[in-house]
């Protein structure tokens, strides 16, 4: 069964249609890249999959392992294994990162009927994961993303992804704001999570990321729908030709 099926999705924001019948099927084990010009609706798609309020779905459906995702609250989706690494992670002053990570992880486990992590087990896991992503421990003592640099915020998203072990990872421009070394570290983190059960949807503007995270499919999004799908070579082609050909369509 497909992990994610987006069928003919139509989405409005404040009476303006942003997605006009978008379809996308993602199977376990696959890596899909989505590329497309600014404002083509990539983040909108990721938000609707994650369940962000404020979007009106006027047509189509989203199935996750055959279940209607649009019927679920955002936290239910997370517990089922949907994870979105945000393009713009928010800062949450007063909520310590460690406390947040533990509360979130245990909430997901509880929703799945699994036992909660004990404090030592949790700390051990966080330490392992943050070390592999070169995230200093004292960053975790601060408020969630508070005072983090752009790159640190992105790394914190990958840290959460590694900790929660979701089955569908949507990465919305994880490469923006990362320096070359940080990009490699983050991409290694993502690659370490690749498995035959897990799928990735990587939204990016740059072919460079796809050298690190090699996709099985590349989709071009323009004006609210997928206009072309190909293999990894499509990304290289786009780098040459740009999006003009699709925008005129």
């Amino acid at each position: 069964m497909a992990l994610l099926e987006v069928k003919d999705l139509q989405v409005r924001v404040e009476d303006r249609e942003i997605l006009h019948g978008l379809s996308l099927t993602v199977n376990p084990g696959e890596v899909h890249a989505i590329m497309g010009p600014n404002g083509s609706g990539k983040s909108t798609l990721s938000h609707v999959i994650a369940g962000k309020p404020g979007y009106e779905v006027t047509g189509g459906q989203i199935l996750f392992r055959g279940e209607d995702l649009l019927e679920m609250a955002p936290d239910e989706r997370a517990a089922k294994g949907v994870f979105l690494a945000f393009q713009y992670p928010v800062e949450i002053p007063g909520v310590a990162t460690m406390n947040f990570l533990r509360t979130a992880l245990n909430a997901q486990r509880k929703a799945r009927g699994e036992s909660e992590y004990s404090t030592p087990d949790f700390l051990k896991k966080v330490r392992e994961v943050s070390k592999s992503l070169s995230i200093p421990q004292d960053m975790l003592k601060r408020g969630v993303n508070v005072g983090f640099s752009g790159g640190e915020k992105k790394r914190n998203e990958i840290l959460q992804m590694a900790l929660f072990e979701p089955s569908l990872c949507i990465l919305d421009e994880m490469d923006s704001g990362l320096d070359i070394d940080a990009l490699r570290i983050a991409a290694d983190g993502v690659n370490a999570l690749r498995s035959s059960e897990r799928a990735m949807v990587v939204i990016t503007h740059y072919q460079r990321l796809l050298n690190y995270i090699v996709p099985d499919y590349v989709h071009v999004m323009a004006k609210g729908s997928v206009v072309k799908t190909g293999g990894k070579e499509l990304a290289l082609q786009l780098e040459e030709s740009g999006y003009a050909q699709f925008e005129d369509a």
Partner: peptide
């Protein structure tokens, strides 16, 4: 937007609110 971030990470509505109220 903070509430949504927390919920997207698995916190049910009341728990997400509680965390922000505590903060």
């Amino acid at each position: 937007s903070l509430l949504f971030y927390l919920r997207a990470r698995g916190l049910p509505e009341k728990e997400a609110q509680a965390l922000l109220i505590q903060a």
